[in-house]
Design a binder for these strands. Sequence first.
DNA 1: TCGATTTGTTTCGACTCGATACCAAATGCG
DNA 2: CGCATTTGGTATCGAGTCGAAACAAATCGA
Lengths: 192, 192
Amino acid sequence: MFMAGDRLYVLLERLGNLLRTEERAAGLPHGLQPVHLQALRYLQACNRYSNTPAALTEYLGLTKGTVSQTLLLLEEKGLLRKEADTEDRRVIHLLLTEEGRAVLKEALPPELFKRALTRLPGDGAALEEALSELLSSLQAANDQRSFGVCGTCKHFQREGSGRFRCGLTREPLSREDSELLCREHAALPAGH
Amino acid sequence: MFMAGDRLYVLLERLGNLLRTEERAAGLPHGLQPVHLQALRYLQACNRYSNTPAALTEYLGLTKGTVSQTLLLLEEKGLLRKEADTEDRRVIHLLLTEEGRAVLKEALPPELFKRALTRLPGDGAALEEALSELLSSLQAANDQRSFGVCGTCKHFQREGSGRFRCGLTREPLSREDSELLCREHAALPAGH
DNA sequence: TCGATTTGTTTCGACTCGATACCAAATGCG
DNA sequence: CGCATTTGGTATCGAGTCGAAACAAATCGA
């Protein structure tokens, strides 16, 4: 009666709903919706090439008009500020304020999620691995970018003794840079 | 910098967003939103004790007012019909129409999801298992019902040769019944 | 019997989201 | 160079979700 992927789909759907509900509750005291928290979290984790409205739009999978509204609200609440790019005057960079970081730290991940994790057998590493695979597949199928961490990108170059460089922009990268999400991220060819 | 459960949370969040986006696209030709498809799917999979607005409300984790709206829309579109309960005149049973089943069959799971699954190594059984665990934990933490299939409930009783009974309602159950979701589902004590 | 609880509906307002139109800066091409 | 195209971002509108609260009706319980 059911196809193989069906149960998996239902599971993911329900988990997604649950997280959404928790996120709604977590954001309520700050007057934030789930999408606002997701935006803040992305901005906290992305690198300096990727903290723009356009990149956030791709990450969230929404339209740019919608995201523009979201950003307006977050700016009004003082959780982020906008800064013009020095090279391309169309581009705007989005920077979390201290308040923004504080909200994130308090609200995400929601308390109940953290508690539920402690009941899980094992450390969840295998689960994480499997979900990563699934996400990549889905992103590939949807022509979406992967938004992986810089250091796992095929453009990432090691120059010895903790010095790195991006093969795309040619810019040098610090160790901190190498741990941030990048919109230009391209997965390495298969094989670990 | 990141806690252990953090990456897992991000993964689930992103997968949830992706599924939601696909669901939105899948429902668009029928004028349906993600939540409408989820409601239809639940009604297709649940048993005769659980096809009521109240049960659907618990399943979706929304308020009853919201769900009432959803049901109004689905009824207007001819995807389900309401039927009064014969015993308790407050309760209403929700039954999918043929059109409702047809829409579900065509729209869920979305095409892209199915294609992405084929790229996954293995059959996803392990992933399914792990996600089930996680879902149970989260539901327990949120005081939510599990909505498992009837045959895995602690009230489920085997009476030999394909005959079953629900220890809660005392009613006999067919094999088909035993495979449906039940709002009264209570997990068996741990241990397989 | 009478109040409390449960089931479902209605109404209202805040908010998300996509669509569309629009503007400005950058890019590409003859 | 000059002009069309592309890209980044904003503004406005309408459809729709969602929670909160008030409401009605049936059932349950002391």
